[in-house]
Nucleic acid binder design. Structure first.
Lengths: 211, 211
DNA sequence: GTGTTATATGGAGCATGGCTCCGTCTTGTA
DNA sequence: TACAAGACGGAGCCATGCTCCATATAACAC
């Protein structure tokens, strides 16, 4: 039997109300289960952030004082674990978009968000290593996460286009892809600066093609 | 003892004349050795190009009709094999830079080369999957390969800057990084178009910041 | 409380793939 | 032809991903 817990979560998050399970859950989820799950996430996040992206899952389980079986019940594979860790971070980022949109004129909101994206990656090495997978990977889970960011930037771009500030030619996803590319290495001290410079280039380029 | 063949090659390619081995090689390299090496490369390239990036090395050896030990003597680990396969491709790309520079005015040469980069990735799925490693990875081998591309684009940018066409602010590597980001997914039919659009945006952005 | 049951636990163990070791075989040279 | 430098190959070791299932425990009904 497929373990139900994570799948349930995903389905719920993905499609809101699904047709999947008609029978309403008869029981509250067990407290130890939730505790363990959170523990695993905490440990995994710490490890990933510390650059230990390749940490063996047994080790994650050990650090969370949990059996390997438990880990696998909560997260059916490595990708699922990474996904779960990063989802929160990405949501955070996506949530910032509407706020910025309310505070700034369209183009500046876009620029600000892109910079935030860069900042975020710089601050937490968290995202970069997994970003490839997140945006281009084969995993359905990853695709799901990517969508969140995609929606965020699409709205920002749409607003900027509507205001006539940037060209209609712009494909929002391209901007995101480009940023993701830069984020691929957080090496060297000049990294952050150069990433921000790229943001300006992208914005300038998007503007220029209007004329 | 470390096997000598690959290390020797790398050292020679990397630093030209090294101080490493004083004693001149007493023998011509064995023909079967070279044959096997080429065979392995051919098989590996075919596999990688076909998207089988995760192909087990045993399988590569099998297809090349060679023992696993032989594979490992030629390529001490998976990265070394990938590196060897891609190096040729990257050199190819880098070699195009001076040709384009001779044929076009600076900015257009830059644009053309960036497009070529995109074309190349589109044509051979080869590069994309390994590009992360190539540009940001920890492996010294990868770093080495990246340098080739870096040199290529740096010259193109320098020429364009010298001609006053684009801003001095441009960090060539940023452009490469951005393109690499886009190349991360070759998914969807619109991919190539949108990548080229990004090239134009980057060029336009680089120009705009001059004024 | 106590009994019942759904649910979680944990770790032995299997499969797979990376990589090493070393006895055997081949090839270039004299 | 002799011989040694050097290549060959594959058995086998080890790490890691993932499964299975007997056991333990939290939630609920009474």
């Amino acid at each position: 039997m497929a373990p139900s817990c994570i799948c349930g979560d995903i389905l719920r998050l993905t499609r809101g109300k699904t047709v999947t399970d008609e029978k309403k859950p008869r029981r509250r989820p067990r407290s130890d289960g939730q505790r363990n799950r959170e523990n695993l996430l905490k440990v995994a996040k710490a490890a990933f952030t510390a650059g230990e992206i390749d940490i063996p899952l047994d080790e994650v389980a050990r650090r969370a004082a949990v059996g390997i079986g438990t880990l696998y019940r909560h997260f059916p594979n490595r990708d699922a674990l990474i996904e779960a860790v990063y989802r929160a971070e990405l949501d955070h980022l996506a949530d910032a978009a509407p706020v910025l949109a309310a505070q700034h004129p369209p183009v500046e909101a876009l620029r600000a968000w892109m910079r935030l994206f860069v900042d975020y990656i710089a601050a937490k090495q968290v995202i970069a290593p997994a970003l490839n997978g997140l945006m281009g990977g084969t995993s359905a889970l990853y695709a799901q996460s990517g969508t969140v960011l995609q929606n965020a930037i699409e709205k920002l771009v749409a607003a900027a286009v509507a205001s006539g500030d940037i060209s209609t030619e712009i494909e929002p996803l391209d901007l995101l892809r480009a940023l993701a590319g830069v984020s691929n290495y957080a090496a060297g001290p000049g990294w952050e600066t150069s990433a921000k410079r790229l943001v300006d280039i992208l914005i300038a380029g998007s503007r220029a093609s209007t004329s």
